[in-house]
């Protein structure tokens, strides 16, 4: 860079000298005109050079930032940050490279940690559950002791579900579910409604489907099942006796609206989406359903909106 500047200014100087001589030949000897002219030209050249140079650095830096943003920290590759020629900011480059390296290391460490936790927790839970199952076969157990054992088993179930849901959320975060295929909404919906057939019957819920044609969309199949099952589950479980569920397609858009009757909820919509945020009447729920729904929508590029008012809950997803 400096070499370029020197060459340019040298050329400018020679050119100016030449101009000067040329003007002198025509007995134009007034230095006060030529010298300022020389300065003006030189400054202009420098400004243009600076402008171009800044633009180039900006471009280069922009590319660099972009790469950090979408940086695939999952890959073990250590050359995410390529060499950029903004010499003056080499320090930043070094610092950032180290930072990104650290993030990569943390990323894989965390991923391993989650895998280990899920594995190391599930085996002890399996042992406790097995031993409790052995215990209840014993003929010497008093009636009231069964209740204690049952309470333990229920808590064990909850522990399992929380663990499985958290692992699931992490897997979604770590882009575990990437393969996409064409999904038929109606198939998954019908399958899910079958699953909740008993709840729907006992609570005397009226379910109305208003979908003319099959709605199809492109997303990961596992996530699609989880998304629709969780949405329907919410609509069934947080309903009221003799309530309703209406499933409509959105007009003009590829999307679905699910409206259900339910209890009046005081918790704000935003907070409901937070992990472990449970409505007041729901000691059973582990409070991860809506988090799972919203994370799946985020990673799948699905627009999600949810609102509740006066005991009616409305959730809309747009593919």
């Amino acid at each position: 860079m400096i070499a370029v500047i020197l060459v340019v200014s040298q050329l400018l100087l020679i050119f100016t000298m030449f101009l000067y001589d040329w003007f002198s030949a025509f007995s134009f000897k007034n230095n006060w005109v030529v010298l300022p002219l020389f300065f003006v030209v030189e400054i202009a050249a420098l400004l243009i050079y600076e402008k171009l140079n800044t633009n180039r650095i900006k471009l280069s830096f922009g590319r660099f930032i972009k790469q950090i943003k979408k940086g695939n920290y999952e890959s073990e590759e250590s050359h995410i940050i390529q060499k950029y020629d903004f010499v003056n900011i080499t320090d930043i480059q070094i610092e950032l490279s180290q930072l990104v390296g650290q993030i990569q290391a943390d990323y894989s460490e965390q991923k391993r940690y989650i895998e280990n936790v899920s594995h190391e927790l599930m085996t002890p839970i399996a042992i406790i559950r097995g031993k409790l199952e052995l215990l209840i076969q014993s003929p010497n157990i008093e009636k009231n002791d069964f209740i204690l054992i049952n309470d333990m088993m229920l808590k064990l179930d909850r522990l399992t579900r929380v663990n499985q849901s958290l692992v699931l959320l992490s897997k979604i975060d770590y882009n575990h579910y990437q393969d996409k295929s064409v999904i038929s909404f109606n198939d998954i919906l019908n399958e899910t409604l079958d699953l909740f057939e008993d709840q729907i019957r006992v609570d005397e819920l009226s379910v109305r489907k208003d979908i003319k044609e099959d709605i199809q969309f492109n997303m990961n199949e596992n996530l699609a099942y989880l998304l629709i099952k969780n949405i329907i589950k919410n609509a069934v479980i947080h309903n009221v006796s003799k309530g309703y569920i209406r499933i409509n397609e959105l007009s003009n858009e590829n999307g679905i609206q699910i409206i259900n009757s339910g209890l009046v909820v005081d918790t704000s919509t935003d907070r409901l989406f937070e992990r472990f945020e449970v409505g007041a009447n729901n000691s059973d729920s582990i409070g991860l359903g809506l988090s799972i729904i919203s994370r799946i929508c985020e990673v799948s590029g699905i627009q999600l909106s949810y609102e509740h008012a006066k005991g009616e809950h409305r959730i809309e997803i747009r593919f």
């Binding site: 199952e133 209840i136 076969q137 049952n150 088993m153 179930d157 699953l195 099952k229 589950k233 479980i237």
Partner: peptide
């Protein structure tokens, strides 16, 4: 002795909240 949880999981899978 079969627990209600195990019966529930056998019939409905682990997706349904058991107490329901």
């Amino acid at each position: 002795v079969l627990t209600k949880q195990s019966i529930s999981e056998h019939i409905w899978g682990d997706f349904i909240d058991r107490s329901d």
